[in-house]
C-alpha cells in the first residue's frame, strides 16, 4: 500500500538528527514536526523569522503576529527567537541549518529539483526555496512518487524550470526511499506492501537497487 502524507512525514522524521536545526517546507514537510522521536531534540526554523517554532495554537490562542512560512498560525517554544528576513536567510545560505525538507514537482537523477513554476499554468513564485536548496548540506524531498496524471516525478532530467542544481540528497515518496548518488537514483527502501517492480515502473529514470534493500519501518 502506498503511504499517505502523514506516513511519508513519519518516515522523514526518522532522518532527524539529535541537536540540530531544521527547516520544514510547506505541505507534507510541515507534518514532520508531528512525528519527532521522543529521544531527539531539534529546533524548527521558519524562514519568515522564527527559530524554536512550536505546534499550532489552541482555539482562541492564535496570534496574527505569529505565523510560519505557510502563513499558518503557530506558537513559540521556550528558548525561541525572532529575527528579520535577512538574518533568517543568513542562517539558511550561511549553512547553519542542518536539514531542509521540501516538497517538489520533479526531482532529477543528478539531484536537480523543480518546485516553483509550471510555465503558462502556475506561477506562484519560489519563495525561499531557491535560497534553501542553494546551501543546505542535507536536502530531503517529500513528495508523491507520481503526479495527478500518473507521470513519474522522478526523472532523468527535470522538464519544469528548476529551483536548484544537484542539491537533493534523498527522496521519500509514498512508494519508496531513494537516495541521490553520483551514479543516479538508488532505491534503498520500499513502502510496506509495495513491490520493487511497481517502483521501477513508476520511475522515469534508472534505479540502482541497494543490496540491502528493505521495507520501511513506520
Amino acid at each position: 500500500m502506498a503511504l499517505n502524507k502523514d506516513q511519508i512525514a513519519k518516515r522523514i522524521a526518522q532522518e532527524l538528527v539529535n541537536n540540530t536545526y531544521v527547516n520544514l517546507g510547506i505541505g507534507i514537510p510541515t507534518l514532520v514536526a508531528n512525528h519527532v522521536p521522543s529521544d531527539i531534540n531539534v529546533e524548527f526554523q521558519s524562514e519568515n523569522g522564527i527559530l524554536g517554532m512550536g505546534p499550532f495554537p489552541k482555539e482562541g490562542k492564535e496570534d496574527a503576529d505569529l505565523i510560519n512560512a505557510g502563513k499558518q498560525t503557530i506558537t513559540s517554544l521556550p528558548g525561541a527567537v525572532l529575527f528579520d528576513s535577512a538574518m533568517s536567510f543568513s542562517m539558511i545560505r550561511g549553512n547553519h541549518i542542518h536539514l531542509s525538507v521540501l516538497g517538489a514537482m520533479q526531482v532529477a537523477e543528478n539531484g536537480d529539483i523543480a518546485n516553483w513554476k509550471i510555465p503558462g499554468k502556475m506561477v506562484k513564485g519560489m519563495g525561499g526555496a531557491m535560497d534553501l536548496v542553494s546551501s543546505s548540506n542535507n536536502i530531503i524531498v517529500a513528495m508523491t512518487h507520481t503526479n495527478r496524471q500518473g507521470q513519474s516525478k522522478l526523472l532523468k532530467r527535470c522538464t519544469l524550470p528548476i529551483t536548484g542544481v544537484s542539491c537533493v540528497k534523498k527522496i521519500v515518496t509514498d512508494l519508496a526511499v531513494i537516495e541521490v548518488t553520483s551514479k543516479g537514483f538508488k532505491l534503498t527502501e520500499v513502502a510496506p506492501g509495495v513491490s520493487e517492480d511497481e517502483i521501477i515502473n513508476s520511475t522515469d529514470a534508472d534505479l540502482i537497487i541497494d543490496k540491502n534493500l528493505r521495507t520501511m519501518v513506520l
Binding site: 505546534p55 499550532f56 495554537p57 489552541k58 482555539e59 490562542k61 492564535e62 496574527a64 503576529d65 505565523i67 505557510g70 502563513k71 499558518q72 498560525t73 503557530i74
Partner: peptide, 12 residues
C-alpha cells in the same frame, strides 16, 4: 485589522 491568512489550530 490584522487579518489571519491561514488560521490553524491544535485540536484540544
Amino acid at each position: 485589522e490584522k487579518r489571519i491568512e491561514n488560521k490553524t489550530i491544535t485540536k484540544a
